[in-house]
Computed example of a mutant assay.
Amino acid sequence: MLKIGVLASGRGSNLQSIIDSIEAGELQAEIKVVISDKEGAKALDRAAKYGIANKYINPKAYESKENFEQAMIDVLKKYGVELVVMAGFMRILSPYFVRYYRNRVMNIHPSLLPSFTGLHAQKQALDYGVKLAGCTVHFADEGMDTGPIILQAAVPVKDDDTEETLAKRILVEEHRIYPEAIRLFSEGRVEVKDGKVKIKNRE
């Protein structure tokens, strides 16, 4: 069974969607540990509720970003984590971390990448006037919101949308496609070739 480690900084709604998929038997995986860089993050409470190991690692306690990330790697290794899942983790991982878990770190971003990277992706989409927004699950690489795309879902943009209403509708799709991407990975159906993801035996 696939062993997952989750990195989260906030409420952990995507973490919850993964937990729900596991509980429902839709995803054959086990969340071994949840790590947060924020003390008191709700994601840690969610983990504790389900008996999942959880740990706050204070970035300020380390002399460098690499030392902080090494502390995270040490915890992930302790729990035998095979796939690292970023669920609202608000730090950009360094090349050091990404190289260690090459094509084994997933992230979800609330836009149809490569459009609208970084913060406030929904506002960027509205400001640009796009007719379709959405979300993307991808493998993290050395860039920001770059890396091979695994799955995407589109959401129509309404004329009266605000950043909040659009974000809410995108979040529904995030909760659908993130567990699906993890499921495909767990089944050995995700292959990265020439910087692109190929999904084997896609329905």
Rank of each mutant, 00 (worst) to 15 (best):
L166P: 04
Y62N: 13
K32L: 09
L171K: 12
V84A: 05
S64I: 07
L83F: 03
K60T: 14
S115I: 01
G195R: 06
R183S: 14
K42C: 09
E63T: 11
G80K: 05
R189M: 12
R99S: 15
N67M: 15
K65E: 10
A8S: 10
K200P: 08
K196T: 10
T117R: 15
E191N: 11
A153V: 00
G12P: 02
G188M: 00
G195C: 05
R104I: 14
Q122V: 09
R169W: 06
G5Y: 11
L112I: 13
V130W: 10
L15A: 05
L83N: 02
Y100Q: 12
G51K: 11
E66K: 14
L113Y: 00
M86P: 03
M1S: 12
L112E: 12
A43P: 03
P110T: 07
Y178V: 07
D127V: 05
S13C: 02
I19F: 08
K168W: 00
A47K: 12
S94D: 08
S36A: 09
V75F: 01
D20I: 05
S115V: 06
L126W: 00
A8P: 02
Y50H: 15
I150E: 00
I31K: 10
N58H: 06
K198P: 04
Q28Y: 09
E163S: 04
M144E: 08
A87S: 15
Q152C: 01
P156F: 13
G25V: 05
N58W: 08
L93F: 10
R46N: 12
R183H: 13
V157F: 03
V34W: 03
G134D: 10
E82V: 05
L119E: 07
S9Y: 13
K196S: 12
M144W: 00
A71V: 08
T136P: 01
I19L: 08
Q122R: 06
D145A: 07
G147W: 04
V6M: 09
G143Y: 05
Q16I: 01
V190P: 11
V172T: 10
I4K: 02
G5L: 13
I22E: 01
K55L: 15
L15Y: 04
Q28V: 13
R183Q: 13
P59A: 11
I92Q: 11
A47E: 10
K131C: 05
A8H: 04
N67C: 10
A87N: 12
G147M: 02
G118E: 07
K200I: 15
G40L: 02
A24M: 08
L166W: 03
Q28T: 13
V192G: 04
D74M: 05
P59C: 11
M86C: 13
E30P: 02
V84I: 14
G143W: 01
K198Y: 15
V157E: 01
I177S: 10
P156H: 13
F185R: 06
V84Y: 07
V81Q: 02
G134W: 11
M72N: 08
F139T: 03
V137I: 03
I177L: 08
